[in-house]
Nucleic acid binder design. Structure first.
Length: 864
RNA sequence: GCGAGAGUGGCGGAACCGGCAGACGCGCCAGACUUAGGAUCUGGUGGGCAACCGUGGGGGUUCAACUCCCCCCUCUCGCACCA
């Protein structure tokens, strides 16, 4: 009897191939001659451990990278660390570990984890944004933006916790309260740095229409965020004063219908124009509106629209009508000009407000076939129509009146066409330690002075005590703050704020093209070669901020002349979340998967309640630790399952039985090789054109069809789940074929076809399960590693079928199947079909009204 | 409210341009091998005794609809007093 064959030992196999890849710098960039392809996955924050989201993200990227390498592309596939950020600082405060130590230890640990996953990165290009070699260029780029007027300083507010005496990041504010001590958060005004992203609003918007490789929903989110509105700015003179109120409107066609004016609480004009008798009421209302602003934001429908009269009037520039000025709680200071011309007849909010305060309603647009009566209207008419009560534009279509009225106000120098964006400039100052210092010096004589290039980087001092109190931690380091002015050599102070970490991640994909460059952030010719990133892969949570900032940086750096790409990412894949069902013990609350044994709580043996499938999160304990899965099943199984369980862009429901299934599959593949290794090693290669019959012919065809399907699924659709399932089918077919091999020698056609099929399986699984692929390939006798082997090609001869089975429907229901020659003519098929006994029976005594034949596909007969 | 996406067996998911619904995997059932099986192999597995019925519901187009058109329901995500 055959000896017991060697077991699939993922541990030793994976360790040895990882060592081999590392020692040979297997995935170093620039070895291939093919066209370039830049595969990039969003780099992680080094929190300490990878999670399943990372596993999924990087598995997807690795399939692509390995596949393209085997197809001969010149692939750039780098990895790095988004390593500045708040958690490092929190660790320092809570556990007394220096952020740098904490961060670098985490990086070391996570790098080890990623290597254990067998990912094909060019580790020579690794970057960490917290390293001076990286952030030097962050500072350099900041200064370039400053030179160009794209970085500037202005007063702006921060969240301040009075209890902790510290600045809070937006994510540290929960419902207006401090995340740690629940004090009510206050707003503090500080001088802060901004990037003028609004200068690129138009281009950022326009190019969303030129990114066909991005998911539509991401583009829509970005368009919403940019929020372009086209309309007009119009100045209304304040009656009996030199002041004017400027409004923005998207409906200049309704200008003749203005019956009041609404100002945002906090509008600077309020103080100037409010009459003495109204002062008390206005102040009271403004205070209330400001306090309620937050609630307003959360659920606008539930807060009633209210306002208060200021006692002042302004004048409609076209009609001269007196228009009462109100302060209203639904007008936002941050949008437009903070002042709105109110046209109750044609705006629903204004309509409700007018009814509430008995303000007149003046109709200026009628529907095409009716006339509106202000007294009986119960809602605003917001559709286009025909102009009335509008002097010179009466009778015009309202859509045409837009331009006409803009011209009227323009002629009177009272307004002009205007475009407004919701997008605000990007505030990048952070009152934090663990970030990139802003390279600026303040001198009493010389003002704001950039740190000269030769003094970069401004090194983050190590001797800062982190207390979690006060404003910017760097301010406490005297050696850091006190500096000589680069211009006048007098005493000066350094900027003590650091940059938003989104700055770091806005150009890291450019640093990867020349990560060791010391004279520039990256070399222009290398950026020219590699950019744009051909495929970017990451989570949907970065749909707006990171992806918009990266687009902005790309454009700004292009205009500075550092490279020539318009957009950073040609194709974007947003992977779905990794989810798992929640398990809860009636006594012990949420349970980790390991704490559930046979459906019972590990602690008290009570039956566990299984809840909904939700995104993995620590707070609900429905998390699976990649380390545990990798140790138990191996990296190949872990990767395979995360790719097989769902297509990449959909949410993935993690379940351990499914992981077992993937493990079983790899074991089946393993046995395929080791159980017949002798035969496989001695079998000769299948020669194209050999004559092959019967079962061997079928397996040969299946092999080539599988190669075709896997190739197309990866390349055209990223449907890795169906690619894997078709390899499983091939494996099943090989198992079915194996009995045919009994008593067959290595020179038989059966052995050759068998070897061809097994070899195809081994190569086709390489992008998904690279370690076992390498191991089996070498056991098949190859001296060349898989990563240097060409992706298998399918033969059109093998795939061609000369006879096929097609279904025959009668009145739309499948009755029989017939074998017909490929490409057969209708009459020939009809003869075959009508000769069939069952068909004869079914059609007996009926007339065939129609005989539909779709070549090589189907027959449908209509009978009655 | 507006915009985008989705709804298919017990479960995850297939079905590309309108052409055999349920590939593949999990789970389940049966058998084989076994001291044993939670290993492995083989077979079966949408519902129904059947004719037939089945892709969220209702209509329609078509020889033929998960797929196209109209109406409706549900869910997920994004936006939301943006003037």
């Amino acid at each position: 009897m055959a000896q017991i064959s060697e077991k699939y030992d993922h541990r030793s196999i994976e360790a040895s191939w990882q060592a081999e890849w590392e020692n040979n710098r297997a995935f170093a960039t620039g070895k291939a001659k093919g066209t370039k392809y830049y595969v990039l996955e969003m780099f992680p924050y080094p929190s300490g451990k990878i999670h399943m989201g990372h596993v999924r993200n990087y598995s997807i990227g690795d399939v692509l990278a390995r596949f393209l390498m085997m197809r001969g592309k010149d692939v750039l596939h780098p990895m790095g660390w988004d390593s500045f950020g708040l958690p490092a600082e929190n660790a320092a405060i809570q556990h007394g570990i220096h952020p740098a130590k904490w961060t670098y230890e985490n990086i070391d640990n996570m790098r080890t984890q990623l290597k254990r996953m067998g990912l094909s990165y060019d580790w020579d290009r690794e970057v960490a944004t917290c390293s001076p070699e990286y952030y030097k260029w962050n500072q350099w780029l900041f200064l370039k933006l400053f030179e160009k007027g794209l970085a500037y300083k202005k007063r702006s507010s921060v969240n301040w916790c009075p209890e902790c005496a510290t600045v809070l990041a937006n994510e540290q504010v929960e419902d207006g309260e401090c995340w740690r001590c629940s004090s009510v958060v206050e707003i503090k005004e500080l001088e802060q740095w901004f990037f003028r992203i609004t200068a690129y609003a138009e281009e950022l918007l326009e190019h969303t229409y030129k990114l066909p490789g991005w998911p539509e929903r991401v583009l829509v989110m970005q368009r919403n965020w940019i929020g372009k509105s086209v309309g007009a700015e119009v100045d209304f003179k304040v009656e009996g004063s030199d002041e004017t109120i400027r409004i923005f409107t998207t409906r200049p066609d309704t200008l003749f219908g203005v019956t009041f004016m609404s100002l945002a609480a906090g509008h600077p004009m309020i103080e100037k124009i409010t009459t003495a008798d109204r002062k008390a009421d206005v102040e009271k209302f403004s205070a209330k509106a400001k306090a309620e602003a937050k609630a307003m934001r959360m659920n606008p429908e539930e807060v009633e629209k209210e306002g208060v009269f200021t006692g002042a009037y302004c004048l409609n520039p076209l009609t001269g009508d007196r228009v009462p000025v109100y302060v209203a709680n639904f007008v936002l200071m941050e949008y437009g000009t903070g002042a709105v011309m109110a046209v109750p007849a044609h705006d629903q909010r204004d309509f409700e407000f007018a009814r509430k305060y008995s303000i007149p309603v003046k109709v200026v647009i009628n529907p095409p076939d009716a006339a509106l009566d202000p007294a009986s209207m119960d809602a605003a008419y917001v559709e286009p129509g025909v102009m009335v009560n509008s002097g010179p534009v009466n009778g015009m279509k309202s859509t045409d009146a837009m331009e006409a009225i803009i011209k009227l106000v323009d002629d009177k120098k009272a307004g002009k066409k205007a475009i407004t964006f919701k997008l605000r400039d990007w505030g990048i100052s952070r009152q934090r330690y663990w970030g990139c210092p802003i390279p600026v010096i303040y001198c009493d004589k010389c003002g704001t002075v950039p740190v000269p290039d030769e003094n970069l980087p401004v090194i983050l001092p190590e001797d800062v005590k982190l207390t979690g109190k006060g404003l910017s931690p760097l301010a406490s380091s005297e050696s850091f703050v006190n500096v000589e002015c680069p211009k006048c050599k007098g005493k000066a102070r350094r900027e003590t704020d650091t940059m938003d970490t989104f700055v770091d991640s806005s150009w890291y994909f450019l640093r990867y093209v020349s990560p060791k460059e010391t004279a520039l952030p990256f070399r222009k010719e290398e950026a020219g070669y590699w950019m744009p990133v051909d495929q970017y892969i990451g989570g949907i949570e970065h749909a707006v901020m990171h992806l918009l900032y990266a687009r902005f940086f790309t454009k700004a750096l292009r205009d500075i002349g550092l490279h020539t790409a318009d957009e950073p990412f040609k194709n974007l894949l947003t992977q779905g979340m990794v989810c798992k069902e929640i398990t809860k013990c009636p006594e012990h609350g949420y349970l980790y998967p390991e704490e559930v044994i046979d459906g019972k709580c590990k602690l008290c043996s009570k039956p566990v309640v299984v809840g909904a499938v939700e995104k993995m999160s620590k707070s609900k304990k429905n998390v699976v630790d990649p380390d545990r899965i990798i140790s138990h099943y191996g990296a190949d199984t872990t990767r395979l399952f995360s790719l097989f369980a769902a297509p990449p862009e959909k949410d993935l429901d993690w379940n351990e039985e499914g992981v077992e299934g993937s493990y079983r599959f790899l074991n089946r593949v393993w046995r395929l090789v080791v159980e017949r290794q002798e035969l496989l090693n001695s079998a000769q290669a299948f020669k194209a054109g050999s004559s092959v019959e019967g079962a061997a012919k079928e397996l040969h065809a299946t092999t080539h069809k599988t190669i075709r399907k896997v190739t197309q699924d990866i390349e055209e659709r990223f449907h890795f789940n169906t690619a894997i399932s078709s390899v499983m089918e091939l494996v099943n077919a090989i198992y079915q074929f194996q009995p045919t091999l009994n008593g067959k020698g290595p020179q038989t056609i059966e052995a050759k076809v068998f070897r061809e099929a097994v070899e195809a399986v081994v190569l086709l699984i390489a992008p998904f399960a690279p370690h076992i692929s390498e191991e089996l390939f070498s056991r098949l006798g190859s001296t060349r590693p898989v990563y240097r082997t060409a992706w298998p090609a399918w033969s059109s001869d093998a795939v061609r079928e000369d006879e096929l089975e097609i279904p025959v429907q009668v009145n739309g229901k499948v009755r029989i199947r017939v074998r017909v020659p490929a490409g057969a003519a209708e009459q020939a098929v009809k003869d075959i079909v009508l000769a069939d006994e069952k068909i004869k029976e079914t059609t007996a005594g009926k007339t065939i009204k129609k005989f539909v034949y779709v070549q090589d596909k189907i027959v449908n007969m209509v009978i009655s």
